[in-house]
């Protein structure tokens, strides 16, 4: 149709797009460049994209454990372990619940679904103190249990899976059930393999969510390195609690390493990210 847009219009459109692209991408390039700068270079020629001199000091500080206050390897380990456990658990429990809410007829299903929608409407900011109170009450404050257990099911994920199962015809499962397969067997061997696209989307949302999680970890732990993740560790480094001074190369390198796993996932599985964004996953 409007393939025959005027040259001026094309020029303006491309011009605007390129300008926006620079605004959206420049911060990441300057971040990468600065992570290879020396402290003095980062301060004196902040806008330069070329480190001069080239310095690997920020990287060796993080991985060499030279600075006592930055327990980077511990943060990394915690982030990886927690994100993996939460992701696997979420994908399993969310699809179980989503399947039951979509397919199984049981007393109270309508109530559970209504409660789920109500829970999704609760703003996260109203949950910081409540989570702390419960974790404290259960005596699990400042433990991995407190960091992981509250995250292993999420309402939005259950909702996405329910919506997905609602859109899939029921006939194939019914054939399996007729053949005498149990409910769990049907779910595990027939339904889940069909749900691959939705499962990938859910996996991505869960990994991204738990990897980037901040406020939950903040309120259920004391904030000692033992229980810090990359994100909470970086926050304490950046907000100056570790007495790190400006040290922009160090901070930006830590931020870069926090970004990389999600970035790799994003660039390799982009279309699933986009589906996720359109299914109601929105950043707070």
């Amino acid at each position: 149709m409007t393939k025959n847009a005027s040259p001026l219009r094309r020029f303006l459109t491309y011009g605007a797009l390129v300008l926006f692209a620079v605004v959206f991408l420049y911060p990441f390039f300057i971040q990468i460049a600065t992570s290879f700068k020396s402290d003095a270079d980062a301060a004196n020629s902040a806008i330069s994209l070329i480190p001069n001199p080239f310095s690997g000091q920020a990287w060796s500080t993080l991985f060499g454990g030279g600075s006592k206050s930055v327990a980077f390897p511990t943060w990394l380990k915690n982030s990886v372990v927690i994100a993996l456990i939460v992701t696997v658990a979420r994908v399993f429990f969310d699809s179980l619940a989503g399947y039951a809410l979509s397919r199984l007829r049981f007393k109270g299903r309508g109530f559970v679904f209504a409660a789920l929608l109500a829970v999704m409407a609760v703003p996260g900011v109203a949950l910081l103190i409540p989570k702390f109170l419960m974790v404290n009450y259960l005596g699990i404050y400042d433990t991995y249990t407190a960091m992981i257990l509250p995250l292993i099911v999420d309402a939005a994920g259950v909702f996405i899976m329910k919506q997905f199962f609602d859109s899939v015809p029921v006939s194939i499962e019914e054939a399996a059930r007729m053949d005498g397969a149990s409910i769990f067997r049907t779910f595990w061997s027939v339904v889940l393999p069909m749900a691959r696209p939705a499962l990938i989307t859910l996996t991505i949302l869960s990994f991204q969510g738990s990897w980037n999680e901040f406020s939950h970890f903040l309120v259920v732990t004391k904030g000692t390195p033992e229980h810090q993740t990359l994100v909470t560790g970086l926050a304490s480094l950046t907000s100056g609690q570790l007495g790190a001074g400006t040290q922009y190369p160090l901070k930006l390198t830590a931020a870069l390493l926090t970004t990389i796993p999600v970035a790799v996932l994003f660039f390799s599985l982009q279309r699933y990210f986009i589906r996720g964004a359109n299914e109601g996953g929105v950043k707070g």
Binding site: F20, A21, F24, L25, P27, F28, I30, Q31, T34, A42, A46, Q208, W211, N212, F214, V231, T232, L234, A235, T238, Y248, K251, L252, A254, A255, L256, T258, T259, V262, A263, F266, F273, I274, A277, K283
Partner: peptide
């Protein structure tokens, strides 16, 4: 390019903007 900042950690991005 436009979507990428949305998937990164808010803490990491704040660090970049501090700089």
């Amino acid at each position: 390019a436009f979507y990428f900042p949305s998937v990164t950690s808010s803490i990491a991005i704040s660090t970049v903007f501090l700089f």
